[in-house]
């Protein structure tokens, strides 16, 4: 047998890998749902993506308790764990988050083009917050009294990374309803990333955001299951102000029109839809929400709750055409929260 026949071409090997390799499973599943015309358009790009070696690329820096970023590099992709727990938690959680987006939606990182995931820990002195600055994630250590480290919850890291995903997709304006949707999507995907990592179905998940970083066993920062109850009579924060229904919509000019409060409304709609559809949140409801957030025709930068509701119903019908119970559950969830 000739050598050229015994050794398949590199291209053929890659195509075979795409067809059989487990790591491309979700990509194949998504691909199988496309129409024939769409497949023809996407085939070349899909194969190119599949052929390209796809891996996460993480870098974690420390600000050494100064307000600088990114700071000093402590751990980069492939390096072993270091002594600093915050560095390792940020590194690991970013890996789970990357895997969530890639394995379920074929999304390679924040920009879907393999962007390096840069994170800075130990930002500022007793800094009790975390944020996405448009290019990277930043986490404080907390004051140790009200807040602990912001790397202690995977849903916070998923939340911040999802702000980046939103920026590269529907890019929702950060005020009023579009801003609340922006915050809600960060919470929804943050909690799904936690559920997927821990393999929890909708009935066993806690649906809480920031349960470790807000100190005290009975406290969390937000609840998708019951907005307004994540913390009650907290000695320093009072009571969770999030509404679960449009009847409680808050116009807070100090928070860009209430983006962190009113996110409770779409958060609760997601919870109701996922719970009533059942199973694992990321399997159906999560796919629908992802399809909506990446649909820049239906979800524009200034989208309202009603616009997003419409997008989720349209995509429920597209993704599950033979199963009206899914789109019915989504429609009912939005109706329940007054949208």
């Amino acid at each position: 047998m000739q050598k050229s026949e015994s050794k398949p071409s590199a291209f053929k090997t890659k195509v075979q890998a795409f067809a059989t390799d487990d790591k491309f499973r979700s990509k194949r599943q998504l691909f199988s749902k496309l129409s024939h015309g769409a497949k023809r358009v996407l085939l070349h790009e899909s194969l190119k993506k599949a052929i390209k070696k796809t891996t996460v690329n993480r870098a974690v820096y420390t600000a050494k308790n100064k307000e600088t970023q990114p700071g000093k590099l402590v751990r980069k992709e492939g390096q072993a764990a270091v002594k600093d727990k915050d560095v390792n938690r940020a590194y690991d959680a970013a890996g789970y988050t990357w895997n969530f987006y890639y394995s379920l939606f074929g999304r390679n990182s924040i920009d879907s083009k393999g962007m390096k995931i840069i994170q800075t820990v130990h930002y500022g002195v007793k800094y009790d917050n975390a944020f996405w600055d448009g290019e990277q994630m930043i986490y404080g250590d907390g004051d140790g009294k009200i807040f602990g480290s912001f790397t202690t919850d995977i849903d916070i890291i998923g939340h911040e990374l999802t702000h980046g995903v939103v920026q590269y997709e529907c890019n929702l304006a950060y005020k009023d309803q579009s801003g609340a949707l922006n915050e809600s999507l960060a919470d929804v995907f943050g909690t799904m990333i936690k559920q997927k990592t821990l393999n929890l179905d909708v009935k066993h998940a806690d649906w809480l955001i920031g349960e470790n970083c807000l100190l005290g066993k009975k406290y969390a920062l937000r609840s998708l299951k019951a907005p307004g109850t994540a913390y009650v009579n907290h000695p320093d924060l009072g009571t969770d102000p999030q509404p679960a229904n449009m009847s409680g919509y808050i116009n807070d000019p100090g928070d860009n029109g209430g983006v962190h409060s009113n996110s409770g409304i779409p958060n609760h709609a997601f919870y109701l839809a996922a719970y009533n559809i059942g199973g694992y949140s990321w399997e159906k409801t999560g796919r629908i929400w992802y399809a909506a957030l990446t649909d820049i025709e239906l979800v524009k930068e200034t989208a309202s709750f009603a616009d997003f509701k419409n997008a989720t119903i349209v995509h429920a019908q597209k993704l599950f055409p033979g199963n009206t119970s899914v789109s019915d559950a989504i429609s009912a969830a939005w109706k329940s929260v007054g949208v």
Partner: peptide, 11 residues
Amino acid sequence: LIQSGGFTGKT
């Protein structure tokens, strides 16, 4: 002086 925003959204 009012500070708002970030992950916590607390004022």
